[in-house]
Design a protein around this nucleic acid. Structure first.
Length: 848
RNA sequence: GGGCGCGUAGCUCAGUUGGCUAGAGCGCUGCCCUUACAAGGCAGAUGUCGGGGGUUCGAGUCCCUCCGCGCCCACCA
């Protein structure tokens, strides 16, 4: 306890209480509690590669609101924090920040030092893979520190002893163990197949990481030769893929092409004979109604290729350039090998854009392009942070088999969603899934596959017979460790072994976040106390990725949901309803916002965002939050400035009881709202109640409370009960200001105190009627209105006030007559029975 | 093209199973130094509840339909 301050302020509360909570271990998880006593939270590990922005404050605050509420409800809250520091985005940011690029062929350079200054226009420095990983390990903690600092200042009540990184040993071990278990059950498998490929980052990309972008393109009408030698016109936006054409396709019902099915067409320039086939996906309305199938121009090509059992003629390499081809060899049959070769040699080594330009010239020169090129706008698949369209290349990848769709949908039903309609996002996603989950990334800073491959005596690596590591040696880097029964000198030798060169997709690790934080296999005691978890808070935009994949992993590993509740938050939009982003120049720095308004004010703004709803970035709300925090300080100072009631004092006055009864209803309402994860409603009701408490109840009873009258005791008890209750209701939203006030009159932390008990309030106010305070407030409002309209001070005297109302209501209102007299500065207050409510106010003459 | 959400005061939003004259805050207007707070207080004005139709004694709320916005998914020759 400390003395009441002369002039309370909210400035500096963050630093003061952050340090205090840290020192006291206020939010430390007590792992002796049983599962039933624990509330465990699967905190989203933020991608540390991003810029800090107010969206982070928004959604992470929502989780903390629930954590603080549950803690006050008596739960032992398990609230860990993670940093997502592996994955493509992190590598990309480190590359940009340090001006480097990986060249895996380079040897490790022990003398490499991070460049001091990076000129964004300068050419990137090529470094080795191990050097790059070291660089990531050096830079990433700087990112993490910025997040930690922000979270701590925002008052997130996480237990920092339970912090993990998605590239840390614990996460790597868990990811590798999870992978090995699936591989041994044949639920993870390796296969060669067409894969969406980012030619800049030179890696495959998962379905979940795709985004569509509208790009200009153009239809080119190519002149194929039909079976009877007549021209067959085919529209394409990808003429450069003509050499990769393996068939042409039309709709089975399309009468124009039905006679041609089963026959062959000859491709222009390359003279390849390709079958004319039928498939429902071919759209008679598009282009000329007949399309060329290339390996591979888009995902429809992949579908056709797979379902029609077509051969592969791949020309685009992993760097996005066309590879050399010898026409006339097996797989590249042509009626005109020299001509095909001459044309193709013009394209070899070019990227797809350059190749398109050149092939259009070649087609034009030979009159194989019919009519004009017609520009269109079409959407093209990109990696969500990529700069060039994805290509499709064939490569070796690890896949996780998806469970049966029905099983996944049943898990979605079993999960409690807040708000409920978000479940549909998962169902849409599950119903639209195509193929299995590609978890391989041809990258560097990630979780390696704990796998090697045997090399036969001829030096050929057998990628389809992986040697799995045993679980006892995890975490493991196969490029450093040696598989059982092999020696290091057999690495990459005939008769020896080769390490899997790839790393796991970031979601392959993130999908195990419950297993990582709860200590799956590593700490069975902790696991038993925390898993399955209570709550997964997350944004709706990653339902298809994080939420979905976590359900899949838990389904396989534990045959259960990973958590009981999914609390989905919206995101922040600017006033034009566009998603707020740094690149758009409309995001403010949250650190500066805390400085300006205070963490409580930012939390207040966040807490106004209802679950699942997007919210407009609005500094006005932060100002209101700041004002509320200051008001709490001042009102509390006033209440606590009144001498405490004597021992055994009771609440006896009807208006005091009335106030407490109303407060009990508020507690019921706030509790029910929090139980539905609706912190916004809880705050709205509490806030409204608090302002009315200040404006009306405090004004009504302040004179009595300060007096020596016996009735003062009742007011004092009621005021302290009310302050205690209101502070606690505000505590989850405004942890700093409520803790500050708590410290003026109580020991310990308000955040470890018990949530208010409505029943206790009702028993302190037995016989109370909520109407009494309402009526008194109405009378007071009429008196104020009279003074306001007369443009006189609120302290000016009322000669007479006559309250007319029904007998029953007069009975209630007259019970607080003396409080009304003092609050309204009324000489004579009378009550008169009548039909309806009115107050006749006679003011003292001006100057009297 | 399919799905989900949203549309209420100038702005941001409440309005729960249909039920008194549709609410709050901000902003706006006027007033008040009032001893917790002038970084404050008191009071006031402000609506075709997106449009149309229907069910009902009664619709912001339920049904149909149209319009607009956002997001997710699909398509992408």
């Amino acid at each position: 306890m400390s003395d009441l301050p002369e002039k309370p302020t909210i400035d500096g509360l963050e630093a003061k209480w952050r340090a205090h909570w840290e020192a006291e271990g206020t939010y430390k998880f007590d792992r002796t509690k049983s599962r039933a006593e624990v509330f465990s939270i699967d905190t989203p590990p933020p991608t540390v590669s991003g810029q800090l922005h107010p969206g982070h404050v928004f959604s992470y605050t929502h989780t903390d609101l629930i954590a603080r509420y549950q803690r006050m409800r008596g739960k032992e809250v398990f609230y860990p924090m993670g940093w997502d520091d592996n994955g493509l985005n992190v590598e990309r940011r480190v590359q940009l920040l340090t001006g480097t690029i990986v060249d895996p062929t380079l040897p490790y350079d022990p003398n490499f030092v991070r460049p001091e200054k990076v000129d964004p226009k300068a050419r990137s420095i090529a470094i080795s893979r191990p050097n790059f990983i070291e660089l990531c390990e050096e830079v990433v903690p700087e990112f993490e520190a910025a997040y930690h600092d922000l979270w701590a200042n925002m008052g997130l009540s996480v237990d920092w002893d339970h912090t993990y990184t998605t590239i840390g040993a614990k996460a790597v071990r868990t990811s590798q163990r999870g992978f090995l278990r699936l591989a041994r059950r044949d639920l993870a498998y390796r296969s060669e197949s067409p894969t969406l490929w980012d030619v800049d980052m030179k890696t495959s990309v998962a379905q979940a990481e795709l985004t569509d972008k509208e790009l200009p393109g153009a239809y080119h009408k190519l002149v194929f030769t039909g079976p009877d030698g007549s021209p067959l016109l085919i529209d394409t936006t990808r003429p450069e893929l003509l050499p990769a054409c393996v068939a042409v396709v039309a709709h089975p019902d399309d009468e124009r092409f039905q006679p041609l099915f089963g026959q062959h067409a000859i491709t222009p320039l390359f003279g390849a004979s390709v079958p004319i086939v039928a498939h429902e996906l071919a759209d008679p309305e598009k282009g000329t109604g007949i399309a060329m199938i290339c390996t591979f121009g888009d995902t429809t090509d992949v579908t056709w290729w797979r379902e029609l059992s077509l051969p592969v003629r791949a020309i685009v390499q992993r760097d996005g350039r066309l590879r050399p081809i010898t026409w006339g060899e097996a797989g590249w049959e042509t009626t005109n090998a020299p001509g095909a070769q001459a044309a193709y040699d013009e394209l070899t080594g070019k990227n797809v854009k350059q190749a398109q330009k050149r092939i259009v010239e070649l087609l034009t020169e030979t009159s194989l392009l019919d009519g004009e090129i017609r520009p269109i706008t079409h959407s093209v698949k990109f990696w969500e942070n990529g700069t060039r369209p994805l290509e499709i290349v064939t490569s070796q990848q690890w896949f996780i088999r998806y469970p049966d769709k029905g099983e996944m949908l049943a898990r979605g039903q079993e999960l409690a969603w807040w708000p409920d309609f978000m479940r549909v996002r998962l169902e849409n996603w599950v119903n639209g899934l195509v193929g299995d989950w590609n978890i391989t990334r041809q990258r560097f800073f990630g979780v390696p596959f704990p796998v090697w491959y045997p090399i036969d005596d001829n030096g050929i690596t057998d990628f389809l017979s992986p040697i799995l590591a045993t679980e006892d040696v995890l975490p493991l880097d196969p490029t450093a460790a040696v598989p059982p029964r092999y020696a290091e000198d057999q690495r990459n030798q005939p008769g020896g072994f080769a390490a899997d060169p790839d790393v796991m997709d970031t979601w392959a690790t993130s999908s195990l976040s419950p297993q990582i934080v709860c200590g799956w296999e590593d700490d069975p005691d902790l696991f038993a106390r925390t898993f399955p978890m209570d709550m997964r808070p997350q944004a709706h935009e990653i339902i298809r990725t994080w939420l979905f994949s976590t359900i899949v992993r838990s389904h396989y590993e534990h045959d259960s949901l990973p958590w009981a509740n999914a609390a989905i938050s919206g995101f922040i939009v600017d006033p034009d309803r566009k998603k707020l982003s740094k690149s758009a120049g409309n995001a403010d720095d949250p650190v500066a916002l805390i400085e300006q308004y205070g963490a409580d004010a930012l939390r207040y703004w966040s807490a106004n965002g209802r679950p699942g709803m997007d919210m407009v970035f609005d500094e006005g709300q932060m100002k209101i939050g700041r004002r509320l925090a200051i008001k709490i300080l001042n009102a509390s100072k006033f209440v606590l400035g009144i001498r405490a009631a004597g021992d055994g004092a009771q609440v006896t006055e009807p208006v005091d009881r009335s106030m407490l009864v109303g407060l009990a209803s508020l507690v019921d309402e706030a509790t029910a709202a929090f139980d539905r994860f609706d912190y916004a409603r809880a705050l709205e009701r509490t806030e409204g109640h608090f302002w009315a408490f200040c404006d009306d109840y405090l004004e009504l009873v302040k004179n009595r409370a300060y007096s020596e009258a016996p009735e003062a005791e009742s007011a004092k008890v009621a005021l302290h009960l009310a302050l205690d209750t209101l502070l606690k209701l505000f505590a989850p939203v405004l942890p700093y200001v409520t803790e500050e006030v708590w410290s003026w009159w109580q020991n310990g932390s308000i955040h470890r105190s018990a949530w208010p008990d409505a029943a206790a309030l009702r028993s302190a106010a037995v016989g109370g009627d909520a109407q009494v305070l309402d009526l008194a407030s109405e009378v007071l409002r009429e008196v104020r209105r009279a003074k306001s309209e007369a443009k006189v001070s609120m302290r000016s005297k009322v000669l007479e006030a006559v309250v007319t109302d029904t007998a029953e209501r007069i009975d209630l209102a007259s019970a607080c007559g003396s409080d009304l007299v003092q609050a309204g500065v009324i000489d004579e207050l009378r009550f008169s029975p009548g039909e309806s409510f009115s107050v006749a106010v006679t003011l003292a003459p001006v100057g009297a």
